[in-house]
Amino acid sequence: MKVDIGMKGQDREAVGQILNAVLADQHILYVKTRNYHWNVVGPQFKSLHELFEEQYTQLADSIDTVAERARALGVHANGTMAEFVRDARLKEEEGRGLDSATMVGNLVHDHESVVKQLRADIERCDDQLGDAGTADILTGILEDHDKMAWMLRSFLNEKSV
């Protein structure tokens, strides 16, 4: 059935590309956070293990929101690891043998990278593509990433940030 929500098909497709890139970034960050949750060691093990779990759970919810928004626009939501790796603006990395401070620093960097990219995505959705709904969803996700980065930064001292 044709989607008739006041947006041109080409604009919906462009928003869909943005959403699929966000979806890919969210998956890369989800997998990295889950990996760190499983493999963190050291004196802050319990608190980081729990924080990583909170964050990957929050990312899972965000992933669902983004995919459902793509579908609401009549756009295919990517769902394979190959698509996520291909479309992600974040990069996977080897997670073996990392100390907890490196894990936290890597996640802070990724969350901050997502925030920067989301700012551009929000502006494009709202100003160029006329999709305030997606811009609003992405704004909420940006706020979540801001908070997750802050929570992680609190584990690091000022010199390492």
Rank of each mutant, 00 (worst) to 15 (best):
A21P: 00
A21I: 01
V22P: 00
L23N: 11
L23K: 14
D25I: 12
L29P: 00
Y30D: 00
K32Q: 09
T33R: 04
R34S: 05
N35T: 09
W38F: 01
W38S: 01
V41G: 02
P43W: 03
Q44I: 06
Q44V: 07
Q44T: 02
F45R: 04
F45K: 04
K46D: 13
K46P: 03
S47D: 08
H49I: 04
H49V: 03
H49Q: 07
E50D: 13
L51E: 15
F52S: 04
F52V: 02
F52W: 09
E53H: 05
E53I: 03
E54C: 09
Y56K: 03
Y56P: 03
T57R: 08
Q58C: 06
L59V: 14
L59G: 02
A60K: 06
A60E: 05
D61L: 13
D61A: 14
S62W: 03
S62M: 14
I63A: 07
D64P: 03
V66E: 02
R69K: 05
R69H: 05
A70W: 08
A70L: 11
A70P: 09
A70G: 09
A70Y: 08
R71E: 15
A72I: 07
A72C: 09
L73Y: 10
G74P: 06
G74M: 04
G74N: 10
V75L: 08
N78G: 08
N78D: 12
T80W: 14
M81I: 13
E83G: 08
F84P: 01
V85N: 04
V85P: 06
R86T: 02
R86Y: 01
D87H: 12
A88C: 04
A88N: 02
A88G: 02
A88M: 02
R89Y: 12
L90E: 11
L90Q: 11
L90S: 15
K91A: 14
K91V: 08
K91F: 05
E93D: 13
E93L: 11
E93M: 13
E94K: 10
G95W: 13
R96M: 06
R96I: 12
R96E: 14
L98G: 01
D99G: 06
D99A: 08
D99K: 11
